[in-house]
Each structure stands twice: as structure tokens, then as C-alpha cells.
């Protein structure tokens, strides 16, 4: 179990994190989401032991970060957003470097290297220099370097940025395998569908504060309004508002209703009577992205 207790962090007078607390159960995948500048990276750096000066404490199993930093670091595999590899050296050299940094040597290191290379699908390229690798291969090796010491906690900071769908799929397989092996995963990403697909629980952070925390299904239920999605040239917002609260969404409209099936029936009848032909008419299942926009708004955050 990872217990984050009252974490606050200041950069000079700027408060990056404000009294954040949550608990991640062992063997689960926790998604950390938030807009740019929300404090996500600061929290990831604290969780991975990079940032040392902060208020509050983190408990990992029976250890406290404030007292047992080295023991905790040995349990963590940190996969940064940046590709942290020595480009001019081979994949093997890079794996040896990170294996050694976690205390692996000799036959044990070789055995783990073989296992990890197999896991990330780079066994055939082990003797090649990293500079010759594609973006996806580098990302996979970046992950492999963090898994050599079989960490119980894997922290992934946007591991799928800028890669092709095949490599992304391969990374998802690695994550599923890690989950099956019982690893605890902390996953940060801007891709909401990835977080929704992979994570059991999420923390939504904005302006340094934890806006929401909980199990994915609970949050979807909490924020999701039962609704219908309807689209078509002949469909107008004014007409939909006679059935309930409606708003534009994408290339159609979202119609909120406490009884979506009943509203669906009425809407179909109305369309028949008035010879309206919707292009799409379906029950809408709320997504993590809806919760995200609901809590953080839709305004740009890069200013």
C-alpha cells in the first residue's frame, strides 16, 4: 500500500502541491490526471524519490519516505516521460547501467536482462546502438531499464507519448503483464482513454489540489448524467430542449435525462411524427474525459 499524507510543495513562493492525501492499494493501477501545470509532474517526482524537500510524508508498505528513502527507491521502477538512455551505447550497455544502479550483477543481471528483453521485444536488437532505434523501441527500452530489478511499484510518466499504435499496444501488454504479476502501477497520462482502459482508480489534480480521487466506476457514476447522444442535419438544439437539458457535443447534441430509455422512446416517436432522420441516436456512456472537463473546465492551460 502507498499512503500519501498531506503532501505540500513550494517552489519559492509558488505552491505546486497543496495538502494532498490519498492511498493506493497494492497490486492496482492508479491513474494520475490533470491539465498542464496542475502539479502532476511535481507529485510524480516526489513519489519516485527525485524531489526530496516537501512537507508531509509517504508510506510505502512499512516504510516512510522521510526515513527509509533508499529502501523505497529500491522498490520503485521509474519510467520518465523523457527517454533517458545513452544513445551512443548499445541497448545492452544501457540495461547493464541501470541494472548495476539497482545492485544487479553477474548471472542475476544477465537472467533479468534476457527476461526484460523478451518482455519488451528487443532481444534481437540488444547489441545495436540506441541511436539506431525507432521512437517506439526507445520507449520500450526506457521501460525495460526500469523493470530490471523487478520493482513492486512502477511509476510511468506519459510512457506512450509520440509513438506508433503498435508500440503503444506493446506497452499496454507490458502494463497488463505487470498488473498480472501484482505490481502496483502509478500511471500519468494526458490520454484519458488510456487511463480509463488501464487504471483501477484515479486521482485528478488541478492547481496543486486533489480535485477527485476514487475508483474509476465510482467516479464515472458520480459525475455521469444519464444521457442520449443525437446527431443529424434535421436535429436542432431547441427541439431537444423540449425533452430536457441539452447541450452541443462534438458534431451532435447531448440530452440529459433521468430516464434515458423513456426519453429515447419519446424522441424516436417525435422523430417519426415529424419525419426527422437522426444520423446517430444512442445512449451515451460518460467517459473519464467528461469528468476531467467537468472538474477542470475546457479553457486552455498553456498560457
Amino acid at each position: 500500500m502507498i499512503k500519501v499524507e498531506n503532501i505540500s510543495k513550494y517552489y519559492g513562493t509558488l505552491q505546486a502541491l497543496n495538502n494532498i492525501s490519498f492511498t493506493i492499494n497494492e497490486g492496482t493501477c492508479f491513474g494520475l490526471v490533470g491539465p498542464n501545470g496542475a502539479g502532476k509532474s511535481t507529485l510524480m517526482k516526489i513519489l519516485s524519490g527525485i524531489l526530496l524537500n516537501f512537507d508531509g510524508d509517504i508510506h510505502v508498505r512499512d516504510w516512510k519516505v522521510s526515513k527509509d528513502r533508499l529502501k523505497i527507491k529500491q522498490q520503485i521502477g521509474y519510467i520518465p516521460q523523457e527517454i533517458c538512455l545513452e544513445d551512443t551505447l548499445t541497448a545492452r550497455d544501457n540495461l547493464i547501467l541501470f541494472g548495476n544502479l539497482y545492485g544487479l550483477k553477474g548471472k542475476e543481471l544477465q537472467r533479468r536482462m534476457d527476461e526484460v528483453l523478451d518482455q519488451i521485444g528487443l532481444s534481437e536488437r540488444v547489441k545495436d546502438k540506441v541511436v539506431t532505434f525507432s521512437g517506439g523501441m526507445k520507449r520500450r527500452l526506457n521501460i525495460g531499464c526500469a523493470l530490471l530489478h523487478k520493482p513492486g511499484i512502477v511509476i510511468m510518466d506519459e510512457p506512450t507519448v509520440g509513438i506508433d499504435p503498435q508500440s503503444r499496444n506493446s506497452i499496454f501488454s507490458i502494463i497488463h503483464q505487470l498488473k498480472a504479476e501484482g505490481s502496483t502501477i502509478i500511471y500519468s497520462s494526458h490520454y484519458m482513454e488510456e487511463v480509463e482502459q488501464l487504471c483501477d482508480s484515479i486521482g485528478l489534480i488541478d492547481k496543486g489540489q486533489l480535485m477527485e480521487f476514487g475508483r474509476m466506476e465510482e467516479l464515472l457514476e458520480k459525475y455521469a448524467k444519464p444521457s442520449l447522444f443525437i446527431a443529424g442535419e434535421s436535429i436542432e438544439l431547441g427541439m431537444l430542449q423540449t425533452f430536457g437539458e441539452a447541450e452541443a457535443k462534438g458534431n451532435g447534441y447531448l440530452l440529459n435525462s433521468d430516464e434515458p430509455l423513456l426519453t429515447l422512446e419519446k424522441l424516436v416517436a417525435h422523430c417519426r411524427e415529424n419525419s426527422l432522420e437522426p444520423r446517430r441516436l444512442e445512449l451515451y456512456h460518460p467517459r473519464l474525459e467528461d469528468i476531467f472537463f467537468n472538474l477542470t473546465g475546457t479553457q486552455l492551460r498553456d498560457a
Partner: peptide
């Protein structure tokens, strides 16, 4: 610049 300093800081070194 390429994050190696932070990456190494996350190890027990």
C-alpha cells in the same frame, strides 16, 4: 536536458 539526472536521482545511487 534529457532527464538523465532526474532518472538517476530516482535510483538508490
Amino acid at each position: 536536458e534529457r532527464g538523465m539526472v532526474a532518472r538517476i536521482a530516482s535510483t538508490p545511487l
